[in-house]
């Protein structure tokens, strides 16, 4: 079962580029142009990894992180951003982001690694949960 990624960025070309890239790496990819669209998807659909921009009209990345922390607390969103202030970075940390990565994403490997880490973490939990089920009478 492959992981489902949600890519949130107001720049269409970046959404396209990232979804192409991760599709080619065998992930299922969904996209949203802002926080609000992302929330609509999160409400109706299983999502394993969120990759989000910070500066977006109509619910920005930080607000999205806040929503996720409240409604999908198992998610560890990855923040991609052109510019991070110290305050922003601390908010990301507090709101449970996995990491933040600077645009222009000179090396996509950093992003892939972050996705892999999340994948590992999820797999680990799935194993644990299976073990738990197995132990039940």
């Amino acid at each position: 079962m492959s992981l489902i990624l949600l890519i949130v960025d107001d720049e269409e070309m970046i959404r396209d580029m990232l979804s192409r890239h991760f599709s080619l790496l065998d992930y299922d990819v969904m996209t949203a142009a802002n926080g609000r669209e992302a929330v609509r998807i999160l409400e109706t659909q299983r999502i394993d990894v969120v990759i989000t921009d910070v500066m977006m009209p109509d619910m920005n990345g930080i607000e999205l992180l806040r929503y996720i922390k409240e409604h999908n607390p198992t998610l560890r969103p990855i923040v991609i951003t052109g510019y991070v202030t110290l305050d922003n970075a601390l908010s990301c940390l507090r709101l449970g982001a996995e990491t933040f990565i600077f645009k222009p994403l000179q090396d996509l490997a950093e992003l892939e690694n972050a996705v892999n880490r999340i994948e590992e973490r999820l797999k680990n939990w799935q194993r644990k949960l299976r073990e738990l089920r197995g132990m039940k009478p």
């Binding site: 070309m13 580029m17 990232l18 890239h21 510019y83 994403l105 996509l108």
Partner: peptide
């Protein structure tokens, strides 16, 4: 930054 991101990606 943004256009560079998608050229690079």
């Amino acid at each position: 930054n943004n256009p560079t991101t998608f050229i690079s990606g």
